[in-house]
């Protein structure tokens, strides 16, 4: 196959990108009308996992901090919505800002102590938060429903909204949030804040000498990441209409991490791949051997880590590089 070279920034490059995005957009919009309700629901779930992975990516991918507690943040968002809608009969949409606020504040609360910690120590601390979440939820069962969980009645959602059934409505709701959140994440990363954060990840002390205050940025990224997880959790509550402690265990945190590294750490598209991975892959791990599904999954993770540390996205890029070369425009010197 002849290898072609595309120069970034040329009209050819732009039109390929435009066509690509247009096609993607078309697929995303048509999907719930082509697929059955159940499949639509599955893609909605995949997007929710992708948002969870995205939130972890902001922390782990950009600032290099490992969190094993994102299951708790996701759960906190979900519980916020379930309690407000289920117990206090709020309009579901209004609970999203509340969930965002609650998790943002919680993020600051854990972000400040986390400032003093790096690497393994932070992983330990977030592990503690992730593990403590379930017993604490159960302890306050008058609000959370304890181990029975708390549910939202279906009738709080209209049967049909602007000609969409509930599955389609929820799908588009999540798509809209996903588009906005991914765009926000992208802009944040490209902003001064994002550059400061990645500089700190790569080497903290030189970054400090260049006038970056780690404290402020680290807290900010922690809070934002946790808010993103909280919003994803709130949307999850829309879709599942139920929160129980069993859904937000360490397993979920491990799945987020696995989705992150398998998709491709530090990249936005990787988060989407990670979401699809979480939703669809264990399914097929089971096909290989039912009783050893855990082992198959464990091996998949280890093999990907050992052979393709950049994740599936890295692999895709490698394959693409064999077909086309995307080059930066030559630097023009005056």
């Amino acid at each position: 196959m002849a290898k072609t070279t595309i120069i970034r920034g040329t009209s050819q490059y732009r039109s390929i990108v435009t066509v690509g995005f247009a096609l993607l957009g078309l697929v995303v919009i048509l999907l719930p009308f082509v697929m059955s309700g159940f499949r639509t629901f599955q893609f909605t779930m995949a997007l929710l996992w992708a948002l969870g992975v995205l939130s972890l990516n902001m922390l782990t991918g950009w600032s290099g901090q490992i969190s094993l507690g994102h299951s708790a943040l996701f759960g906190l968002g979900s519980y916020t919505t379930c309690i407000l809608v289920g117990t206090y009969e709020w309009n579901p949409l209004l609970t999203i800002p509340v969930a965002a606020l609650v998790t943002f504040i919680f993020g600051i609360m854990i972000g400040i102590p986390a400032l003093r910690l790096a690497g393994l120590y932070l992983a330990l601390m977030t592990l503690a938060i992730g593990v403590a979440f379930t017993p604490v939820i159960r302890r306050f069962k008058e609000h959370t429903g304890g181990s029975m969980g708390i549910s939202i009645k279906k009738k709080v959602f209209p049967e049909e909204i602007v000609g969409l059934n509930l599955d389609q409505y929820l799908y588009f709701l999540v798509v809209i949030f996903a588009v906005v959140m991914f765009a926000l994440a992208r802009n944040l990363l490209k902003s001064r804040v994002g550059r400061a954060i990645t500089a700190m990840r790569d080497n903290e002390i030189p970054a400090q000498t260049m006038g970056i205050y780690p404290a402020r940025y680290k807290t900010l990224i922690f809070a934002t990441s946790s808010m993103f997880a909280g919003i994803a959790g709130a949307l999850y509550a829309f879709v599942i209409r139920f929160s129980a402690p069993y859904s937000f265990t360490l397993t979920l945190a491990i799945f987020f991490l696995a989705g992150l590294v398998v998709g491709g750490i530090g990249t936005l598209a990787g988060a989407v791949l990670g979401g699809l991975f979480i939703q669809f892959v264990p399914y097929y791990a089971e096909e290989i051997n039912q009783s050893l599904a855990g082992m198959v999954f464990g091996i998949i993770i280890i093999v990907i880590m050992v052979t393709a540390p950049t994740g599936v996205l890295g692999l895709i890029k490698k394959v693409r590089a064999r077909v086309v070369t995307v080059a930066d425009p030559p630097v023009v010197r005056n």
Binding site: P282, Y283, E286, G294
Partner: peptide, 13 residues
């Protein structure tokens, strides 16, 4: 068929 194993679910009940 299957999907999702609670391997590490500390909060199993």
């Amino acid at each position: 068929t299957t999907r999702r194993f609670g391997a590490a679910a500390l909060a199993l009940s």
